[in-house]
C-alpha cells in the first residue's frame, strides 16, 4: 500500500504544453505513472507525444477518467487551475508552482476547504509525491526511490526529500510514499495529514519527517506523534543556525521573533518521542536502526545484504 497515490491514480497535467509541464509530465509517464491527459486552454485537440490535450479539466476527466491533477502553470494562473481541477471532481491536485502570492494561497486553500472538501491539494511550491514503483507526480527523480516500503517520508523541502530518499535507498531501505508538502506558508497538505495517513497505511512501518524553520506545523505534528501514533518517527529539522527575520529561500522558512525556531521544533519532537537527527545522513542512519528494530526479516535482510 501507499498513501494518496498508487497504481489506480490517473493523472491529467495542467500545463502539459508548457516547458516544465511537458518535461515533468513525460518524465512521470516514463516512470510508469498513468498520465492520461493534458490541459491547456485553447490547445484542445493537440497531443504531446501521444498524450491528448484538452481545453478544460472537466473535458479531460470525462474523456480519460483522470482522478488526479498535476498543476505546472505560472503563478498567476495557478489559483484558477487548482480550483478548476477541484470543480472537475479530481480528488488529488499536486501543484509544483513556486512564488504564488500568499494572499492567493490563503484564498484558494479556504475555498477548497469549504467548497471541495474531498479534494486534497499537495503544494504549492513542492516537489510532488511518489509511491515508488506505482506512481510519481511532480519533479522527483524516480530512479533514486526504492519500492516496497517500509518507510514513509514527508518533507517541506524538495532537495532534502531527494537526499532522504537517496540515503534510505543506499541503505537498502524502501519507501511506501514520499510526500513533499512544500515550503510555502499555506500548504494544502501538512505534516499532520501525512502522519495520519502513514499511521493508517499498513505497509508503512516507520516515518521520516523533514521539517524546517518557520510556522508551527512541526510542533503540532509533535503533539500528534505523542498522542496518536504507534509507528516510530525519525525527524530532521533544517535551519538550526538561521538568523531571525531572514527568509531562508522558502517563503515559509522564517524565524519571526521567538517563533518558528528549529530549537523549539526539535525539543517538541524529542519530547514527543521522535528520534531527531542533526543532519540528513544521521537521519538515514537512525532509520536503519529503526527498521532493524522492526524485527521484520524482509526489511532487515535487505539492509544486511548491503
Amino acid at each position: 500500500m501507499s498513501i494518496f497515490v498508487d497504481e489506480s491514480t490517473v493523472v491529467v497535467v495542467q500545463g502539459l504544453t508548457g516547458g516544465q509541464g511537458r518535461f515533468h509530465g513525460l518524465r512521470n509517464r516514463a516512470y510508469g505513472t498513468k498520465v492520461a491527459a493534458g490541459v491547456t486552454p485553447g490547445k484542445g485537440g493537440q497531443d504531446v507525444e501521444g498524450i491528448p490535450v484538452f481545453d478544460t479539466v472537466a473535458e479531460a476527466v470525462a474523456a480519460t477518467g483522470a482522478n488526479a491533477s498535476f498543476v505546472s502553470v505560472p503563478p498567476r494562473s495557478a489559483p484558477g487551475a487548482i480550483l478548476e481541477a477541484a470543480e472537475a471532481g479530481v480528488s488529488l491536485v499536486v501543484c509544483i508552482t513556486e512564488h504564488i502570492p500568499a494572499q492567493d494561497e490563503a484564498l484558494f486553500y479556504n475555498k477548497l476547504r469549504r467548497e471541495h472538501p474531498s479534494t486534497r491539494l499537495i503544494g504549492p511550491n513542492c516537489p510532488g509525491i511518489i509511491s515508488p514503483g506505482k506512481c510519481n507526480i511532480g519533479i522527483t527523480s524516480g530512479d533514486i526511490a526504492l519500492p516496497g516500503g517500509p518507510v514513509g517520508i514527508v518533507s517541506r523541502s524538495g532537495t532534502l526529500t531527494y537526499q532522504a530518499i537517496y540515503e534510505l535507498s543506499q541503505q537498502g531501505i524502501g519507501q511506501t510514499t514520499c510526500v513533499g508538502i512544500g515550503g510555502d506558508p499555506v500548504p494544502g497538505t501538512g505534516f499532520i495529514d501525512c502522519l495520519e495517513a502513514f499511521e493508517a497505511d499498513p505497509e508503512t512501518r516507520a516515518i521520516m519527517m523533514i521539517g524546517e524553520i518557520g510556522g508551527s506545523e512541526e510542533e503540532r505534528a509533535a503533539e500528534l506523534i505523542a498522542s496518536g501514533m504507534t509507528k516510530p518517527v525519525v525527524a530532521y529539522i533544517a535551519g538550526v543556525t538561521a538568523p531571525p527575520g531572514r527568509k531562508m529561500g522558502h517563503a515559509g522558512a522564517i524565524v519571526s521573533g521567538s517563533k518558528g525556531t528549529a530549537k523549539a521544533k526539535i525539543e517538541a519532537l524529542e519530547k514527543a518521542g521522535a528520534k531527531v537527527a542533526m543532519n540528513p545522513t544521521e537521519a538515514g542512519e537512525m532509520m536503519v536502526e529503526v527498521v532493524r528494530d522492526l524485527g521484520d526479516h524482509r526489511f532487515s535482510s535487505s539492509i544486511a545484504s548491503r
Partner: peptide, 15 residues
C-alpha cells in the same frame, strides 16, 4: 541547490 539543502548545509558547517 534547493532552499532546504542550502539551509541544511549552513547548519552542517556549524556542526
Amino acid at each position: 541547490n534547493g532552499a532546504g539543502l542550502a539551509m541544511s548545509t549552513v547548519d552542517l558547517v556549524s556542526q
